[in-house]
């Protein structure tokens, strides 16, 4: 049987509002990932190749090399579309939240590095001009919040796994 004390030990004594806002953040990020993943699965002809090819900055060579291989692109396409979808579902349900947060952070770091808003780096067409901090970094920071405040054990199926 789950124990309210165990949960309190993990989470400290948060107010209802604090817990609600943290859980909402998780659901919102999950929603974003789920939609990104879903769209890629259902879009006929979607491929990561274009994004990888357009990568600027110091890591461009690595991303271009990925785009150059048909098998690599095929693998990335599957990992991306299904990865984003599963992360999204997990975050919304509050199931395996930590694993999902780590995976989300991994993707976001790659997105950040593939198009780094660093001084002197040409930004990708279609993106705005940022200075070091961009939307990917903000979302990464938010995911890190989820990682250290595992709200899945309050409102989410991770609650089931909490042992006394």
């Amino acid at each position: 049987m789950n124990n309210e004390n165990t949960l309190n030990r993990i989470l400290g004594k948060f107010s209802g509002a604090q817990k609600f806002i943290l859980a909402s953040l998780r659901v919102i990020i999950g929603w974003h990932f789920l939609y990104e993943g879903y769209v890629k699965i259902v879009s006929e002809g979607w491929s990561s190749a274009g994004y990888l090819n357009a990568s600027p900055g110091p890591f461009a060579g690595m991303f271009h090399a990925m785009a150059g291989s048909f098998w690599m692109v095929s693998a990335i396409d599957i990992i991306m579309s299904w990865g984003l979808t599963l992360i999204g579902i997990a975050l919304i349900l509050g199931l395996f939240t930590r694993l999902a947060s780590v995976a989300a952070a991994f993707f976001l770091i790659l997105f950040y590095l593939s198009n780094p808003p660093w001084i002197g780096v040409q930004f990708m067409a279609g993106e705005g001009s940022y200075m070091i901090v961009n939307k990917n970094l903000v979302e990464l920071a938010a995911v890190m919040v989820l990682l250290v405040f595992p709200t899945g054990v309050i409102w989410g199926f991770d609650r089931i796994f909490v042992k006394e």
């Binding site: 879009s43 002809g45 491929s47 190749a49 994004y51 357009a54 593939s114 961009n134």
Partner: peptide
Amino acid sequence: RNVAGKGIEAITAATAQWT
């Protein structure tokens, strides 16, 4: 649109385009 054009396909913009 060209699927492999310089489109933004990552998490920052999910636009299902007729490509």
